[in-house]
Design a binder for these strands. Structure first.
Lengths: 366, 366
DNA sequence: GGATGGCACTCGGGATATGAGAGTGCTAAG
DNA sequence: CTTAGCACTCTCATATCCCGAGTGCCATCC
């Protein structure tokens, strides 16, 4: 009862099950994989594997299927890395290099992963790097609202609404819903001249400053201002600092949700829980972050794998997540990955995720 | 065999079927709706309605279900408008007014519609209004790429990558994939000084100009430039004009896809075709545009309804789309809507879509 | 001691039969 | 024009059966 053969049996079970989607019995195991022993022998090994919790049978007298634990062993020790083919790599590079802007890059990355893996892809927007302010633009928009556009040195662009006339702070209060449509005579300080002054002073104050120096620089500007303008200036300054300092970016893009409905993806519980989990972007984001940052459960190349119940989310109990960080200079600024049934092609998925992550890291603004 | 009663029967069939999701027979029709006649009478009416193509029976001796044509008649002439309750309106306003920026507004609008209708929501990003250039920012990003940020007078912000060192034009060519990661010594004209000059001149040239005057203004700048810089300047100028002039914005956001998997939504063909159709954003966008712009097939308040096969998309043959334009000053700048099974609550869906569209129109930068 | 062949046993799932119920169309009468 | 009665049709749910795949165990062999 050699240990190696038992592992070989487990690998064969995983590969066969992933391929056929049906519980695999001792007979087909000996036939389809060159194990060189009889079904009876395999049965003994399978009994041992089941005892150890690596495989299970859906019901008595059916074939065996791998458990989460079995997949885990497979991923950690048995899976052979299967690098992408050169044409595949080339296709990735071509497709991504055609992107027109950042949104497009991430959208394409998602579609790419979805297509390569046949599963759902999830791509997190890169967090705003801690970087200086490159330009601040103020645009008045309908009513008493101001659009504050922040462009950082690293090339990130963020927009925020600011309700004027109310107190400063990042949380705008409820806008008056009864206000007539269209621009109205500005009650306060929204005329172009004022805005120009504000914009010029704030930009000048921020020029060349690092993020840590911004609050002081802005405070100076605010202090040297008319009493009438000071509150507005302070509101803007706070908003900018807040925006630049916000570490995590909450947006993620999904792609390939249609793959969930494909016949290959029969989930026991149906796909409602999965779809619901995918819509809980905040939770999903937490999962990804956790996954990318934990030292354990990772395979080569910075790719992390969470299998079945290892995901805390109930909705993803029947799925596995393969994710990798990506980012400009080797440090992870965001995460992207693929989500599919636990019965997935792990080597292929890992290779695809890694390839796209690497390419993104290379091409993204550092 | 009064005409009104026949229509009443049709209305009752639609309402009952929408409610119970089961073919409705003559008996329950008389019981649940106060029609005041016997089942036999109803049967005669139903025979006539079937003859006219408004209803059909899934198989002999089952109840009747409305056809697309039947729904159409219902929507056009029989549906009673059912305005939202005041608390509902208030919830919409509160939830949307908490949005932090444009992305957030549209995301919230989508989730709102999805939740109100229990269906899939689709929200198109507003097209870039034809407006002047407010500010142009140039940020060098890793390698030979330039990030061009365009802020228009109307508050729209667009970002585009531009590969430098290659010809001008909006289509960047394939970036060299073998380039080492990280910033490299700029081969051409990407140093800060040069960029400052370019930015200053281009911004100055554009100040106060309308969109139509931009090309000329930029051409002047380019003409007065060093031969070394002229190509880059022209590249940027072209990109900006192209970006501002692009009429249609391709992005849309979806929300509530999880609703598709709910038990209430059993589609004959399964949901694969639906999910696939939803992923074809370009086609979907075409559908929405068409829907919002056609004069026919609209009900009150600018809301358009497409029922079943009226959608050209095969994947949406079993679904109806309820959509409305929205936009700042009464003119439609983008579209939003809800997609669900043809057997949907039309009055409720129409009311929800209209309410959100109206609120967005009122609150969005004009 | 591990590998193998034989064998009785279990169980899921497909095919078939059956019956109940809902609904219809038609006809004749009010 | 409406209504009651009636024979007919068809779906769906239930029950039953049977086949085959697969197992566990035991005796045997190398």
């Amino acid at each position: 009862m050699s240990e190696e053969r038992r592992l070989a049996v487990l690998r064969a079970i995983v590969e066969d099950y992933v391929h056929t989607r049906e519980p695999v019995g001792s007979r087909v195991l000996t036939e389809r994989h060159g194990l060189g022993v009889s079904p009876a022998t395999i049965r003994n090994d399978m009994a041992a594997l089941e005892e150890a919790g690596y495989i299970a049978q859906p019901h008595t007298s059916a074939g065996r299927i791998p458990t989460d634990k079995g997949y885990r062993l497979f991923v950690d020790r048995l899976a052979e890395v299967r690098p992408l083919t050169t044409p595949q790599r080339r296709a990735i590079e071509t497709f991504l290099s055609e992107a027109i802007d950042m949104d497009d890059v991430l959208g394409r990355a998602g579609r790419l992963i979805a297509q390569l893996t046949g599963q759902v892809a999830v791509v997190q927007y890169p967090s705003l790097r801690l970087a200086g302010l490159r330009h601040l633009e103020l645009v008045p928009v309908g009513g008493a609202r101001l659009l504050v556009v922040v462009i950082s040195d690293s090339g990130r662009v963020e927009q925020r609404f600011l309700d004027v006339g109310v107190g400063p702070g990042a949380e705008p209060s409820v806008v008056a819903v009864d206000a007539p449509a269209g621009p109205e005579p500005d009650p306060g300080a929204l005329d172009e001249g004022t805005l120009s002054v504000l914009r010029a002073r704030l930009n000048a104050a921020a020029a060349g400053k690092g993020l840590e120096d911004l609050p002081d620089a802005f405070a100076h500007v605010v202090a040297g201002m008319d009493a009438a303008l000071a509150p507005l200036a302070r509101g803007i300054a706070d908003l900018v600092v807040d925006t630049l300092g916000a570490q995590r970016e909450e947006r993620i893009v999904l792609a390939g949700t249609a793959n969930l409905a494909r016949a290959e993806m029969r989930f026991e519980q149906g796909l409602s829980p999965v779809l619901e989990a995918l819509e809980e972007q905040v939770v999903l984001l937490g999962l990804l972050t956790e996954l990318a940052s934990e030292p354990g459960g990772r395979v080569g190349g910075g790719v992390g794998v969470r299998i079945g119940h290892e995901n805390r989310l109930d909705g993803l109990a029947e799925t596995s997540v393969v994710a990798s960080g990506y980012g400009g200079d080797g440090d992870t600024v965001a995460i992207l990955g693929s989500i599919g049934p636990t019965r997935m092609d792990y080597p292929g998925t890992i290779a695809s995720v890694r390839a796209v992550a690497r390419y993104l890291s290379r091409v993204l603004p550092g």
